[in-house]
Design a protein around this nucleic acid. Structure first.
Lengths: 414, 414
DNA sequence: AAAGAATGTTAAAACTCTTGACAAATACTA
DNA sequence: TAGTATTTGTCAAGAGTTTTAACATTCTTT
């Protein structure tokens, strides 16, 4: 069946097919012909001609040559017109800020990343983002008028209608701050705000490890731990935008205290902060480990532990494996409840690779019902630390493309 | 926005509005006028006239008088035509079998329930169901040709396309047995097979405690524990039909063994079987409890414990409270991941009422993120032990009604 | 070169929905 | 009590989308 995944409020059911065709073109690698579109959407070729002509007229879509291998007239392949415009994707993490510039074909043209501290609160953080975006635009000889849409991800539960976060455990000072409104006021372009794990899921679904999966979960193991849930390419936010908050599942009754006020949360034993802390503790205890030689102890990061583990450091491996087991407990619960076809593990800690994944897989096999556990695939993110920024690009593109698709004829901007 | 919730494979997008109108009429208590339908669906009154005329012609819908309170022409109220036909809903539990006969307006005309043992395997169980259904039909002077559709719920993970259960922990011998095909072959009517907790959710959503909630979870605390998840009135089954398997979340590392092979599953500490066992153990330990006077110890059920607890028996109350705490742990996880607006607790054990619910609520408040925990409502099932059979009726009606709505003109069956 | 096959286009007809007008049936008001 | 306002439901014309059926296009195969 066709998928419906444009984020703009489902306006007219009229252009429904037009939007569905657009998405099918977007997410078919290598493009797709009118005939195949018609087949996939259960429409006549004649109808498809009309729809595609609309899209061609607005210059969202373009034709490319193709070399046929079968007998019969070779199809004309359709693809998104990359030059139709640009969009921006922003990944605002706890400790880093990434901004990506992309064309309409979701090709990232440039990208800047800087260290960052989200706990500074909204004003200074958004000012930093503004400066960085300005820099990126200047570097690429673009001004903001050429940017059609902006997507941004932040590490907290989102209220989409309001464009703000609600009671975010790791974003002190942001609760209720009108993030989208603020950005939109400054740049005067459409802005969509999402949770970073949700965007990670979207990114991996569109162009990563979970391409086209109907039921996908993305687990972001960064400073904290969050999950993004995707159903048929659509972000599942739950009733108040708090869906997928896997980081605060209790996985160890007697575990350490968590920032959220509870004890034994997944995040408190397997998040990046927790892993770094365990690394420092190991050094302080005087254990033999590579970690002692990786710079000043107070600057030790989870990524250092992951890297050391890959290099064969036993202490680090133990820490990562333990974290994997805890992640497995929580993900096993997610598998039992949500029953995804694929779980993509991303975020900085996932650099540890199979060292982290194997205990996750083992725990899931042991703890989830066979029906769900047998079919679920557990993989690392292909887009690496770009999952979320790519998801932000995808989201921004959805806005831009479907906005253009609404208009009749393409008043030839550009 | 309008909801799309007919279960038949989304055929043509053509009659989309017709089906949506039908559902709006079905689930609006007291009926609805053309004008209000048009408003709610964002269509013109003229278009609505045409759609409704179609439905009237097929006699699925009928007009009723109404007394207007406002100025202006009084609206003509539309409602489902109860006499258009009948459907059957079957709830096949672990220890009981319930069959309900309903008219097209979802009014249950008759109902039979017998004790039952699902572990006998498919053939004897289905034979019993056939016999019971025959009895019900004879009692009501109907033969099977007058039944337009049949819905059935069983306590296991469902593969919908195949109409069978897959690796069910509590249905030995049923794995892979073609349940739907078998029933369909015997009675020659459309059959839909679902998980009993899913149907419980559907029943409570349509006519119970969760009426119209967009994000609903139903927790069935019967012999085992299962959850049914509903999104906009549609059952969420996950990628392989195993979604909502909350019973096998690990809630106590050091807990007792579960039938599924794991240890510390929710079901093993808070399911009906577990509660009954704890009751028996209390008697055997010689604790002062009402339970000792409730008949032979080996026949003690979870419902007995629930009843004793309501009567003030401290030992029973302790057992129920403990079970509630464990349920709370698992439901807190579900709230964090799924973020429903309402959780309906049903099944035999839920008869204990607030005694069970209060510890659940407390645990959720403590363990879930505030954003999700504050908004979620925790209630008991209004339909009591009829939740699932009612859900089966709803499902059967969806099949029957939308099938009739497909046809042009109503070749006046009956 | 002719046949076969798949793609894409065109024009007419069918279908759905909107617009604007109007009839119907009530409450309110003078 | 008659007139006005108000809301509901219907009708006819027109716009927009999709299907049907025919045809043109462009390749491979024979």
């Amino acid at each position: 069946m066709s998928q419906f995944l444009w984020p703009t409020p489902i306006q007219n059911v009229k252009n429904l097919n037009k939007h569905a065709v657009l998405d099918l073109i977007r997410f078919t690698p290598g493009g797709i012909s009118r005939a195949e579109l018609a087949q996939r959407m259960d429409l006549s070729r004649a109808a498809m001609t009309a729809i595609v002509n609309d899209l061609l007229e607005s210059a969202i879509v373009r034709e490319t040559e193709s070399h046929s291998k079968q007998s019969g007239r070779p199809p004309i392949i359709l693809e998104i017109n990359p030059a139709r415009g640009h969009v921006i994707g922003i990944d605002m993490g706890v400790t880093h800020l990434t901004i990506a510039l992309s064309n309409f074909a979701a090709q990232v043209l440039d990208e800047i990343e800087i260290p960052f501290d989200i706990t500074q609160g909204p004003e200074p953080c958004l000012a930093q983002a503004e400066a960085l975006l300005t820099e990126l635009l200047e570097k690429n000889d673009l001004n903001i008028e050429k940017i059609m849409s902006l997507g941004i991800g932040v590490p907290g539960p989102i209220v989409s209608e309001e464009g703000m976060v609600i009671a975010p455990p790791v974003m002190p000072g942001w609760d209720g701050y009108p993030i989208r409104k603020q950005i939109q006021a400054y740049w005067s372009i459409p802005v969509s705000l999402n949770n970073d794990a949700e965007l990670g899921a979207l990114g991996e679904w569109a162009y990563g490890a979970g391409r086209g999966e109907s039921h996908l979960a993305y687990i972001k193991v960064g400073s904290g731990v969050g999950a993004g849930l995707l159903l048929n390419g659509q972000i599942y936010q739950g009733s108040t935008g708090s869906a997928g908050e896997i980081g605060h599942l209790t996985v160890d009754e007697n575990g350490p205290a968590c920032d959220c006020g509870n004890t034994g949360c997944l995040e408190a034993v397997a998040g990046g902060k927790a892993i770094a802390r365990q690394g420092r503790e190991a050094i302080q205890k005087g254990q033999r480990t590579l970690l002692s030689s990786m710079g000043p102890i107070e600057e030790l990061t989870a990524r250092d532990v992951a890297v050391a583990a890959r290099r064969g450091d036993l202490v680090s491996q133990q820490i990562i494996t333990r974290a994997g087991s805890y992640l497995g407990i929580a993900i096993a619960g997610l598998v039992n409840l949500f029953n995804p076809r694929m779980v993509v593990v991303g975020g900085g800690v996932s650099q540890a690779g199979d060292l982290l994944l194997q205990p996750i897989r083992d725990t899931i096999q042991r703890r989830s019902l066979p029906g769900a556990a047998k079919t679920v695939k557990i993989n690392t993110a292909i887009l690496r630390r770009r999952s979320s920024s790519m998801g932000a690009v995808v989201q921004a593109l959805s806005n831009a493309l479907h906005q253009f698709a609404e208009k009749k004829g393409g008043e030839s901007l550009l």
